[in-house]
């Protein structure tokens, strides 16, 4: 099949970017979107051009590495599907596909379709865990968890951290991502002791990262490859309000966001060789 790819090319965060069109005259409908880019890149390299940088790893929809906008929709038109599992047969013969990276201040661009999502790690780092050190756990069956709670927690925990929710949100809000973790741990008895402080800290970090505020629009859940429900955002709001009211020690820390990658290495590529 024939397709026309219009891809955002940008060498680095500071460079100017632009769309470049590439015809794909012999795409195979069974290819995934990423395999189509593989084929394009092979050609670009052979022609002496710079291949398109895009993030990918597991290619089975679970690692959360991949993702970009296809014609204005995060991960493209097929619901509950990441771009690595999106096959070209879902597009029309001769269609133009516009590929654009996630755009958000908290996801600074690295190159072409690759963005920096360390802000998500910092949100988890600020409180998205149960503070239980190795060795101190009671027997797995010591605390009973109703099947319903386990299922609901699993629904929220299915998040793959791809960032599509932020990308699709008109506000560029990370509420669905943050809410998913707060809901997952807040539902389970193991996460209850830290429920208040977790919500306070994670929300504070989410805000510190420069994401927009949630206005309950719901685009996030529409593009979410794991169909995380909007309910998790309500859970976050509830825990945040509850935590704000009950809080006593007033110790909310946030991690200062950083976007730098360079380690300031003194070792240069031209180092003398022995």
């Amino acid at each position: 099949m024939r397709l026309k790819l219009k891809i955002w090319r940008q060498q680095s965060r500071s460079a100017a970017g632009k769309f470049v069109s590439y015809p794909m005259d012999d795409a195979n409908p069974d290819m995934s979107m990423l395999e189509c880019l593989d084929v394009l890149n092979e050609r670009l390299i052979e022609a002496g051009e710079d291949p398109v940088a895009f993030e990918h790893d597991c290619r089975e929809g679970i690692c959360g590495s991949c993702g970009f906008m296809i014609n204005g929709v995060a991960h493209g038109p097929l619901p509950a599907t990441t771009v690595c599992q999106l096959t070209l047969r879902h597009f029309k013969e001769g269609q133009e596909l516009v590929l654009e990276p996630w755009r958000a201040r908290a996801f600074p661009l690295i190159k072409d379709l690759v963005v920096d999502r360390r802000s998500f790690d910092r949100i988890i780092s600020s409180g998205g865990y149960v503070s239980v050190s190795t060795g101190s756990a009671p027997d797995g069956n010591a605390i009973l968890v109703s099947k319903e709670s386990a299922d609901r927690a699993m629904d929220a925990a299915a998040c793959i951290g791809c960032g599509a929710c932020v990308a699709a949100c008109p506000n560029a809000s990370a509420a669905l991502f943050t809410g998913a973790k707060i809901a997952h741990l807040g539902i389970l008895p193991q996460g209850k002791p830290e429920r208040d402080v977790r919500a306070l800290r994670m929300v504070a970090q989410m805000n510190a990262e420069g994401f927009g505020g949630c206005t309950n629009i719901g685009e996030c859940t529409g593009v979410c490859p794991k169909e995380i429900p909007l309910e998790v955002i309500a859970a976050m709001n509830r825990d945040y309000i509850r935590g704000s009211w009950r809080e006593r020690d007033n110790l909310v820390t946030t991690i200062r966001p950083f976007t730098e990658w360079s380690t300031g290495s003194k070792l240069k590529v031209d180092r003398a060789t022995e």
């Binding site: 149960v130 239980v132 190795t134 060795g135 299922d151």
Partner: peptide
């Protein structure tokens, strides 16, 4: 298993 349950793994 004990450790993972305590961490909030929704088995």
């Amino acid at each position: 298993i004990d450790q993972c349950v305590a961490q909030g793994v929704p088995f």
